[in-house]
Design a protein around this nucleic acid. Structure first.
Lengths: 337, 337
DNA sequence: GATCGTTGCTAAATCTATTTAGCATCAGGC
DNA sequence: GCCTGATGCTAAATAGATTTAGCAACGATC
């Protein structure tokens, strides 16, 4: 078989000409409702056979144009490089395929320009709905969707212009911190030396996680101090040096360590490896990664409940729910404790 | 701003009616060559202004139909859950956007049915080219592309129906194994006790990696034995138990361990953690992961050169190169040694 | 006064598929 | 002989763009 780059594709017109029928008949037959339109079985068989012989494949873009629906569903997310976003993408694809649509997932590397450009491309492609995940400010994208009359939903980070499905950061952090406190006290240490590491103050997720962390401390009778929280951003280098600074300042490890994201965790491990410091303290992490889960010390990991989140997100695409614009909280799952 | 789900979109006809001009004029103006067609600047400005006011956005599917090109570029890959595939997807998207197309990346979970179905959907959407990554047998997909006259390229695993871009598994394995042997001998141990772990015998990548592994041994004067290679598949559980079996059989760790994939690595780490066995041997891995790179022992990691691979893949889409159907080998990068 | 050139547009074809209204034919009933 | 209903299709409109050929009007040129 030789490559036939550039050859023209078979259309229903070609099929119609070949069987000497009208395009309408061909269309009806190929779409399966020839009996409803009283087309003879023999005719329909001839058409089907010829279509197969000519290698006819429907042009979904022409169909989409006629029907004014594209068969495409879009999702925007920052990247695929951690399990949360990878799972989001795969779960989205699965759900979209189940609805007989074709998924378009595009990563934007957290670049606002790219986010805007990608969104407008997807809307110009007339996606039937758009999932917006991990975008710092979804408002602008929500507005674009609104103008294009395309239903959309915010995932992971909430926005006011559409329904939002978000992990219950506060409840999750509360839960893990309680576990950590139990463990700290079980080993005879003090919950006064706990540390929250990572994230960016002022960010939705970080603020809620901190709130949960502090609440658990208060519930345990600990009075939170400002040096119990170190928002050092997401880059491993930053958490590495922030953690080092903490240890040097206090002359010891914290008794319990709450790590706010997987990349923050990376930095902590890097510190531990490079300084040959065993992480001899209770550790919890708001994120999950198979490698991190196999590290030589126990980590209480919170895995975001991607499946539930996506199911809820798909359900929020109906008109009424589009208008409601709720923030729907999904509790994360404690993976290991 | 209220949601306007279902509202009709503005077309060039609406704009034409609003400014009392013909659709052709509107199209000409909106496509930027109004001066070539001698349309008055004033007219063009009126059209532009009105289009903006009406919120006109081009319908790429209509344009695509007319121009018989979709503006879409497709890629299918197994999943996003390791850095190699995640990087492939992101690099693909970048390259596609640079060419002013819209990327459609779809994961298939290594399910042949899904691969076929997704490929035919993408072809029916008239993607302008298709990247096929990590598919065990690309031949069928290559044939579909050929029939649809869509250029395609196989990445990661080669196929005979299109050009293929593949990591140089053999050369990479050779290099890492040499490093391992050096390290083994430097610590006074014997290169006779090395182990290749993971992969599936008969698979392209595995076979080539084993070939490189064995060649390095021979070059170092070691006579390979069959118990130096354990193809236990990709699942962490399998490599965990295979490694355990090896250690029990020999009563000690191998002197040097060549791990064939990141999930195999996961299993080894899991074994090491669960049995509290320090991995006190030279370790190399044909794959890269940030967490694995930070483990408390040095691992020589081979990172596939995704950027080069994708650049070569994009270049292989021209007609001549489509016909050539070469296998293009890209050396992987030694990440840490 | 015929021709030419320029200006500023527009009509119409095209891309491929869907879908509704309706045409043509024939048998059967009254 | 006329009407009805069934049968088996087809014509034509439609979806929303792009693009080429060419029209109309007017001044300039020979």
């Amino acid at each position: 078989m030789t490559a036939r780059v550039g050859r023209k594709k078979t259309t229903i017109y070609d099929v119609a000409a070949a069987v000497d029928a009208s395009v309408s008949t061909v269309s009806l037959v190929l779409n399966g409702d020839w009996s409803r339109y009283r087309i003879k079985e023999e005719t329909s068989e001839r058409i089907l056979k010829t279509a197969r012989e000519l290698g006819y494949k429907v042009n979904l873009r022409a169909r989409g144009l006629r029907l004014s629906k594209s068969g495409l569903a879009g999702m925007i997310l920052p990247h695929y490089r951690n399990r949360f976003f990878a799972d989001l993408a795969e779960t989205f694809e699965l759900g979209v395929r189940k609805r007989n649509l074709c998924p378009i997932v595009v990563s934007t590397q957290r670049d606002v320009e790219v986010e805007l450009k990608v969104a407008s491309t997807l809307l110009a492609q007339r996606v039937e709905f758009l999932f917006i995940a991990g975008v710092a400010d979804p408002a602008a994208l929500n507005r674009m969707c609104d103008e294009a009359s395309v239903p959309c939903v915010n995932v992971d980070l909430p926005g006011t212009g559409a329904p939002s499905v978000v992990s219950d950061n506060r409840a999750g952090a509360l839960l893990v911190t309680q576990k950590l406190i139990d463990k700290v006290r079980a080993t005879g240490k003090s919950a006064n030396d706990m540390l929250f590491l990572g994230g960016v103050a002022g960010e939705y997720a970080t603020d809620n996680r901190i709130a949960g962390f502090l609440e658990a401390l208060r519930q345990a009778g600990v009075d939170p101090r400002s040096d119990m929280v170190s928002c050092c951003g997401y880059r491993p280098e930053n958490s590495s040096s922030a953690f080092r600074a903490y240890v040097e300042r206090h002359g010891k490890l914290p008794s319990g360590l709450f790590i706010s994201s997987i990349t923050t965790f990376e930095g902590v491990v890097r510190y531990s490896v490079s300084t040959a410091t065993a992480l001899d303290c209770a550790v919890g992490c708001f994120d999950w990664d198979p490698f991190a889960a196999d590290l030589p010390f126990t980590v209480a990991m919170l895995r975001q409940d991607v499946e539930s989140m996506m199911e809820i997100a798909f359900n929020s695409l109906t008109t009424e729910r589009q208008l409601a614009r709720d923030i729907l909280l999904v509790p994360p799952i404690l993976e290991r404790a």
